[in-house]
């Protein structure tokens, strides 16, 4: 089974890093095939940014996401750009504080995770992406939480492990207890 995941937001939110962490977790710790691609503007920070992950038991030919099963979205701009493109019945995990304007979606599972607020409460707004990853793992169950935690440790700056793992746990707990809401 081929699973397509798109992470989107703006440069500086750790969007590309999120994709790398998830793909590495699947590939190195999960024994699956995975590939991560990315797209960002020349301004890097502040510009539109997306990170795509394909996970499969089989060889992955086309490495780009065509119609995501899961969209993890952290900015209004990215929401507007990608939300209509999610696979029918697919999953949207979004930060409602970054996305004040939602559209009516007919056929998607929408999960609202206040990741930026949770990260601020932890003392560092920049770990909002890791909060989202925690929620992503709890909601989608595509990957094992321990595999993702190992991957986080390998892909973050030394000395930030405690903060990042705490961010992951908080997102995971929030995602686990969240009732599913049809849009």
């Amino acid at each position: 089974m081929r699973v397509e995941i798109k992470f989107a937001g703006f440069g500086g939110q750790g969007i590309i890093k999120s994709g790398i962490i998830i793909a590495a977790a699947a590939c190195i710790h999960g024994g699956k095939n995975a590939v991560q691609t990315q797209s960002y503007g020349p301004e890097s920070r502040g510009g539109a940014c997306k990170s795509e992950v394909v996970i499969s038991e089989e060889d992955i030919d086309f490495p780009k996401v065509v119609e995501p099963d899961v969209l993890v979205v952290m900015s209004q701009h990215a929401y507007n750009e990608y939300v209509e493109n999610v696979k029918p019945g697919g999953t949207i995990i979004m930060d409602p504080d970054m996305i004040p304007h939602e559209v009516d979606l007919k056929n998607a599972q929408v999960h609202r995770i206040p990741a930026t607020k949770i990260a601020e409460e932890l003392g560092k707004k920049i770990v909002a992406n890791i909060v989202m990853l925690g929620a992503f793992v709890a909601i989608t169950r595509i990957l094992d939480a321990n595999a993702v935690k190992e991957s986080i440790k390998e892909n973050i700056p030394k000395g930030t492990e405690e903060l990042n793992l705490k961010a992951f746990e908080q997102g995971y707990e929030y995602g686990k207890t969240l009732p599913k809401s049809q849009a």
């Binding site: 793909a23 590495a24 190195i28 995975a34 590939v35 691609t37 990315q38 490495p63």
Partner: peptide, 9 residues
């Protein structure tokens, strides 16, 4: 650019 920036095994 895609092959260069792509992460894979």
């Amino acid at each position: 650019e895609i092959v260069a920036h792509m992460y894979e095994k």
